[in-house]
């Protein structure tokens, strides 16, 4: 989910209206904010207010698809003037967050608007949906559409399953992964598309992420079949040396 936060910069007195992709970690210290949560890339918001903790909390989408704020232990905040601590509170567009002396107004950008206004999509940023594991085919389409590269910009989509890496293509032509943003429901693709399972393999504090196993184990599977994780063509490509490409391009650098 893409959100916009509006507040007045206390240093300059000017308005600030940055947009972020959730989850958004916020606090005083850039170095203390996580760059990833449950395998998702995190937007980091620095708020230079002495009342805030180095890592104060996070804005994220909960399992119901709602925007929520979660605070770190001992951190405090207010929502629409009401102080709260501890529990997770859901937010709506227009809600006002009080963080120290700052007041931030939240705007959730709806999906169609966000797709038009959000340059990050045009740049091929892969945005793994937070929280639950929705139906596989729908999520695959969503992930692929968000990952299509724009001219000149390396595709940021993760390809490969056992050895995921950034795609890096600057053109959709001949791309076997998102094919210009259109993906069919080929079972092989779905089983080898790591971005569909953002939490797979990440330790969540008490257990390892296992959506892959749960989503792809067929009802009629025999014991052991669910562990058949593929080494994909994209994995193999990660180890290939393209020596034949050298000394061919007169525009290379």
């Amino acid at each position: 989910m893409r959100i916009q936060l509006d507040w007045t910069d206390p240093m300059t007195g000017g308005p600030r209206r940055p947009q972020y992709e959730t989850p958004v970690a916020f606090g005083q210290e850039f170095s203390q904010l996580p760059s990833e949560l449950n395998g998702q890339r995190v937007s980091r918001l620095i708020l230079a207010d002495p009342a805030l903790s180095p890592y104060h909390g996070v804005l994220k989408v909960n399992t119901l698809g709602e925007l929520a704020i979660a605070l770190r232990p001992d951190a405090t905040a207010g929502v629409n003037g009401q102080p709260y601590t501890g529990e997770t509170v859901t937010l709506q567009t227009g809600d006002r967050l009080q963080l120290g002396a700052l007041e931030l107004t939240v705007t959730m950008l709806s999906a169609p608007d966000a797709a038009e206004a959000e340059p990050a999509r045009a740049w091929g940023v892969t945005v793994a949906p937070a929280g639950q594991s929705p139906p596989v085919a729908g999520l695959a389409s969503q992930a692929a559409a968000g990952a299509a590269p724009s001219p000149g910009m390396p595709c940021d989509r993760l390809v490969g399953f056992l050895f995921p890496r950034r795609c890096g293509r600057t053109s959709r032509e001949h791309c076997p992964h998102c094919q210009g943003g259109e993906i069919d429901d080929d079972p092989y693709f779905l089983a080898s598309e790591r971005s569909i399972y953002p939490n797979y393999g990440y330790y969540g504090g008490s257990s390892w992420g296992s959506e892959y196993t749960e989503d792809l184990t067929p009802a009629e599977a025999q014991p052991g079949e669910a562990s058949n994780y593929d080494f994909t063509e994209a994995d193999a490509a990660a180890f290939a040396v393209t020596s034949t490409d050298f000394e061919q391009d007169l525009d290379a650098s």
């Binding site: 972020y20 937007s43 980091r44 620095i46 091929g124 940021d156």
Partner: peptide, 13 residues
Amino acid sequence: VRSLAETLTAVEH
């Protein structure tokens, strides 16, 4: 940085 979103965060910082 690797994306526009990260660029915005970096400028913010």
